[in-house]
Design a protein around this nucleic acid. Structure first.
Length: 305
RNA sequence: CGCGGGGUGGAGCAGUCAGGCAGCUCGCGAGGCUCAUAACCUCGAGGUCGGUGGUUCAAAUCCACCCCCCGCAA
């Protein structure tokens, strides 16, 4: 059971393995993107290429869905970024229950967006957790964990891709170990629980009173999508890449200190942030030099309002 | 039919409303200035104005259709 691209490496591992994949469960095709075209989830596309049966229940509490699932007589449920809280009746339906691939070192970053929040929080390392699923979100017993250092150049996009692969490998390992009976589930520590809520638009707004280092992490966490942003002259300006620049306290946070070939330097609550790649609404993403060529932003301009 | 912005020398943009010599900043090339430089000055090359059709004496500009890029919303 999984929906977006993050789940695909895990599905591929299962398809390549010795066990039969009786079905793929994902969220329904939904109108997405410009023009609201109805687009099938990534896992569905992958499943169909392999001729795997696909289930797309509107409601996970629907009895008809439960019947369909039961008819498949699954031995094990594998859930990767499905995007819905599953009721107990579904969790208990497979003979050996359900396991989950989660992109963090639980109990840290329970929730929908663990990868982004790990970067934004400044974590030095993150990883994946394979766990037995319980009704409480991401609170199940840990079966196996694998860690991955977070590099200073990791973005939400690149880190998620690496964790998807790491998660798939860990999943393979965990299933093999489970079948061999040499995997001992252990409860998550009571201490260290944090939550990583779904990323919403507002999370990307750069609050210039915050330290530059924190803003840089937010920019990376939300790249390439949905992106951190500020505003210039009332227009949305996405910031795709930026770097911290030490600097003396200066003008009010949000003030453009300088705008030249080497970047657009903005005063923050602590230090300065040099914007390197930006995108004005309706325009494509540009290196800051090209952006400034056609859209001059004089020093002294106040961003964010 | 979800709302909206855009496509103009290599890059980014103005010009379109009100049709009339293809413009700006940057880059590139040559020359000059300078102890020197990504600085400064002079000169220069480079464009089927996204495509097709239409209107017109005349279309980047007006009309119709099509292709492509992007922001919002979901």
């Amino acid at each position: 059971m999984g929906t977006p691209a993050f789940a695909c490496p895990s599905l591929e591992v299962l398809l390549a393995g010795p066990d039969q994949v009786v079905a793929v469960v994902c969220q329904p095709d939904r109108p997405r993107g410009r023009g609201l075209a109805v687009v099938p989830p990534e896992t569905k596309r992958l499943a169909e290429r392999h001729g795997i049966h696909v289930l797309q229940p509107e409601r996970v509490r629907d009895a008809a869905f439960h019947d369909a699932l039961r008819a498949l007589q699954p031995d094990l449920g594998v859930v990767v970024a499905y995007g819905r809280i599953l009721p107990r009746v579904v969790l208990d339906l497979p003979v050996h229950g359900c396991i989950n691939v989660h992109a963090s070192l639980l109990p840290r970053h329970r929730g929908a967006a663990p990868v982004q929040w790990a970067i934004a929080a400044g974590d030095r390392e993150t990883g994946v957790t394979i766990m037995r699923m319980s009704e409480e979100m991401d609170a199940g017993d840990i079966l196996l964990q694998r860690t991955l250092p977070i590099r200073p150049d990791h973005t939400g996009g690149t880190l998620a891709a690496e964790l998807a692969e790491l998660g798939a490998a860990a999943l393979r390992e965990a299933i093999d170990a489970l079948k061999a009976g040499r995997l001992e589930p252990r409860p998550q520590p009571a201490a260290g629980v944090t939550f990583a809520p779904r990323i919403e638009r507002g999370h990307g707004r750069l609050d210039w009173t915050r330290p530059a280092a924190e803003l840089e992490r937010l920019v990376r966490a939300l790249a390439p999508a949905p992106s951190a942003f500020t505003t210039v002259h009332g227009k949305v300006l996405k910031v795709h890449r930026a770097e911290v620049q030490p600097g003396p306290p200066g003008p009010p946070p949000g003030t453009v200190v300088s705008a030249a070939a080497d970047g657009l330097v903005v005063q923050t609550g602590e230090g300065r942030l040099r914007l390197l790649e930006v995108q004005l609404e309706g325009r494509r993403s540009l290196p800051v030099t090209a952006f400034l060529t056609g859209y001059p932003v004089p020093a002294g301009t106040c961003l964010g309002r």
